[in-house]
Design a protein around this nucleic acid. Structure first.
Length: 222
DNA sequence: GCCCAGGTGGGTA
DNA sequence: TACCCACATGGG
């Protein structure tokens, strides 16, 4: 079954309206949030971001100059705080050493090359790199997350074993190359996931995509 | 108490 | 490549 992308998008937008992502004031906050949100609820990330903002540390050089244990304490509410302090550190070192701490300079690098550079940073995987490219840089890169995978798989539009690159290709190959569209679409899929596509308990009865469900309801839960 | 959340990297076969 | 595991806080 081919993925009815336009249908999905229209239904989600009609059901939920614009999601106004990314929930951040400026690009550097997106970059920090992209690391902190790894396998973590956004609510916990907000506490960590608030700590950094109130300490006046939402700026690359200031954050990079912080002792690691201090950074750990500030990001603790986001969970995995030792891991994430280290990952923020490696990303900040990359940003400062390669681009003088300027995101503007960083985003002058062509998207494909920049993606490769980000993926080479320890702790930056595909979703984090793509979130930075799309939501901080405004580049036309589709972000794939667990909700995206789950929603598509439960409807039979992809196999449960589909990987990141395959799913990303479904979207990038089937939609106009429009950052605003990629932004909204991904945000809507996350909204759908939170409200209706929980891991253990699919609540498909009132899901905005219920008319697109395969015969017999959602497929095996993942 | 249990399960879950807007992942990633390391280890082993 | 394909699994398995550690990492951790806060909400339901």
């Amino acid at each position: 079954m081919s993925v009815p992308l336009q249908e999905i998008y229209q239904r989600l937008l009609a059901a939920f309206g614009p999601q106004h992502w990314w929930p951040a004031e400026f690009p550097f906050e997106v970059v920090v949030g992209a690391v902190l949100v790894q396998n973590t609820s956004w609510q916990n990330v907000e506490r960590a971001i608030r700590n950094l903002r109130e300490a006046g540390l939402l700026e690359p050089h200031a954050l990079a100059a912080l002792p690691e244990d201090t950074l750990q304490d500030l990001v603790r509410p986001a969970g995995y705080y030792r891991v994430k302090a280290k990952r923020l550190g490696s990303l900040l070192r990359f940003l400062i050493e390669r681009y003088g701490g300027s995101l503007e300079a960083m985003f002058r690098t062509p998207a494909a090359a920049l993606r490769g550079e980000l993926l080479a940073v320890h702790g930056i995987g595909k979703e984090t790199a793509d979130s930075i490219l799309l939501y901080a840089g405004g580049l036309p890169v589709f972000v794939v997350d667990t909700y995206t995978h789950r929603v598509l798989a439960r409807h039979g539009w992809i196999g449960f074993d589909a990987d990141y690159d395959q799913i990303q290709e479904y979207f990038q190959g089937g939609l106009p190359e429009d950052p605003a569209l990629f932004n909204e679409f991904h945000a809507l899929l996350v909204r759908l996931g939170k409200d209706y596509c929980h891991k253990a308990q699919p609540r498909c009865a009132n899901c905005p995509l219920r008319e697109l469900l395969p015969e017999g309801g959602p497929l095996e839960a993942i």
